[in-house]
Amino acid sequence: MSNWVLKGLQSGVVTTRYPRKEEKAQGISPGFPDIDSQGGDINGREEDVCPTAALYGDSNSLKLDKGRCIHCFRCVRNTGHPVSWTSGFEWASFTEKGTPFPKIFQKSLYIRVVDSGDCGACLNEVKLLNNPLYNMHRLGLFITPTPRQADILLIVGPVTDHMKTALRKTYDAMPEPKRVMAVGSCALTGGIFSSGFTSGSGVSSLIPVDIEIPGCPPPPLAVLHGLLTLAGRTK
C-alpha cells in the first residue's frame, strides 16, 4: 500500500492552474472556425460544405453557430478558400432564461450527469474533470449519483427517445434551485443526429436549459468554464 502513497507523491502537482492562471498546454481544445479572420468560403465541393450549417452567411460576413459545429474540419480543408481556426475554450453562454446560482450556493455545487445518447466523447471529457490534471474537486464541484443532492443537471447527447422519460424524471427529482447545463453540440441542437426518428434535437426541446457549452466534444476546460460561469465565479 505504501507504494501507492509514494507513487502518488512522486507524481507531484499536475493540476492545471485554471481559472487563476491561463492554461497554455497544447491539445486541450479542438477549437472553432475563426470567422473574424480573412478568407473563408462556405461553398465548394459536396464534401467541403458545412454538414450541419454551422457556418452560414457569405464570404464577406461569415457567421458561425457554435452550437451546430461538429469539428469536421471541412471548412478548414476547403480547397478553395479555407477558413482559419482558433483555439481557446471559454465558450459557455447563458440562454435567455439562464442565470448564475444565487450567492450562497456558489461555493460548492453538485452535478448529476445524464447521458442522453451521447457518443461517449462528451461523457469522457466530463469524466476527465475528476482527472488529476483538471481536478474539479478543488473548486468545490462534485459529481453525485443522486439527483436529490444535485444542483446542476449536466446533459450530454441529443436526447434520444428512450432517454426522455429518464431525463425528465431526473430533472423532476432535483430540488430547487437547479440549473440545467447542455454540453456538446448534440445536447444543444442534436448535432448530426438531429433528423432521426429516435434521436432528438437537443435538450431544450424537453427541459429548459440554462447554460450551453458548444463543442464536439467540448474539452474538459470548456465544461469547467461552464460550471464556473454557472456558479457565478467567472469574470
Binding site: 507524481s11 497544447q26 491539445g27 479542438p30 477549437g31 469539428h71 471529457e125
Partner: peptide, 26 residues
C-alpha cells in the same frame, strides 16, 4: 486510477496536438 487518468489525458492532448482534435474527429 489517477495515475492512469493522467496518462489518458496526456494521450488526448497529444492527439489534439498531432491531429487537431482530441478524438481524431475529421
Amino acid at each position: 486510477a489517477s495515475q492512469a487518468g493522467i496518462l489518458e489525458e496526456k494521450m488526448l492532448r497529444l492527439t489534439g496536438k498531432l491531429t487537431g482534435h482530441r478524438y481524431f474527429f475529421g
